[in-house]
């Protein structure tokens, strides 16, 4: 049986999420170089001078770097990147079928930004570490860590002021979204990140930033007891009977297709018409545009609040 979480619990969760007190560096030495930062892998990385030839790998890292205004300092990108438009003109070092250290080396990078969840990215990182090029590994198990990544990169590239600006912007938007649905009941939601026609339903649990995003949007993930990206069975979804179904699709098809899945008509989300299809796009990129994803979720979960 799914019960509505108590308001105090929600408040405590949100409060714990804000990274306001997370920055350890003194304000005076904000942009001094050389700087030693600690990345997501816990490694201390020393950067001698502001990097001028940056290679971000993975769409989220590309977005963060560009959001910090460093577009002119990006010499190459890696991953299936679609945003921002100016990034798509940069030379690619791979993405669909792996990353090429040689292609990256061609550009003589002085900073690499990678995400360890992509195995081939680690091989890339390995190669450059041996050359002495600084490599920052970023991870994003929740939304606060996305903000931490922003600040970390800002510090590492000498754009901390801009990073702080972006971060507080982000928090302000999150706060306004929260204010919009505050006081309404928090529905349970099943977030479908991928699915085949009639099976292989993929969703996320705790430890994934989308889980966090749902909480910020005023929803409760029915599968929050699971961890990371998981495949769940149809009957498990039925057993938890979410109030809202949000489906992320690359090429969005009508919500009726989901309602037509055999047996799904008995789910209350389908019966009450609370099935929403969203374009996958930025929803699964843990970068500055996550706030748009949160807004999209919030609109799906609390349509009345955003009318």
């Amino acid at each position: 049986m799914v019960t509505r979480p108590s308001p105090s619990l929600v408040r405590r969760r949100l409060a714990a999420g804000l990274p306001a007190a997370a920055i350890p560096w003194p304000a005076a030495a904000d942009d001094a170089f050389p700087v030693t930062v600690r990345d997501a892998a816990g490694r201390s990385v020393t950067i001698a001078s502001p990097p001028q030839r940056i290679v971000p790998v993975f769409p989220s890292n590309v977005e963060i770097v560009h959001a910090l205004g460093l577009g002119s300092r990006v010499v190459a990108i890696g991953g299936r990147v679609r945003w921002p438009p100016e990034a798509m003109d940069k030379p690619s070092i791979g993405g669909a079928v792996g990353y090429s250290p040689e292609a990256a080396a061609q550009h003589h990078p002085d900073l690499l930004v990678v995400t360890p969840s992509h195995h081939s990215a680690l091989a890339l990182a390995d190669a450059f570490e041996r050359l002495g090029t600084p490599v920052l590994q970023l991870a994003h198990p929740d939304l606060p860590s996305v903000l931490r990544n922003l600040l970390l990169l800002g510090r590492a590239t000498g754009t901390l002021a801009r990073a702080r600006q972006l971060a507080s912007d982000f928090e302000a938007q999150l706060a306004s979204i929260r204010a919009a649905w505050q006081g309404r009941s928090v529905p349970t939601v099943y977030l479908e990140t991928a699915a085949a026609e009639r099976g292989a339903f993929q969703t996320i649990g705790a430890g994934h930033y989308a889980n966090d995003a749902l909480a910020w949007a005023g929803g409760r993930n029915v599968f929050e007891d699971l961890r990371g990206s998981v495949q769940v069975s149809a009957e498990a979804i039925a057993a938890r009977d979410p109030e809202v179904i949000v489906s992320l699709q690359q090429r969005p098809r009508p919500a009726a297709a989901i309602a037509a899945r055999p047996g799904w008509s008995s789910l209350r989300a389908v019966r009450t018409g609370r099935v929403v299809v969203l374009a996958r796009g930025h929803a699964l990129i843990p970068g500055p545009r996550q706030v748009d994803a949160v807004r999209a979720y919030a609109q799906a979960l609390h349509p009345g609040a955003f009318a």
Partner: peptide, 28 residues
Amino acid sequence: MLFGDESTNLRAIVSWQLGGIQTPSTAE
């Protein structure tokens, strides 16, 4: 790998490749 992200859900295809029974309608 080359076209997976364009039109459909990569994870779902990968999962399907490892084998998974789809659920049919009664008619099917």
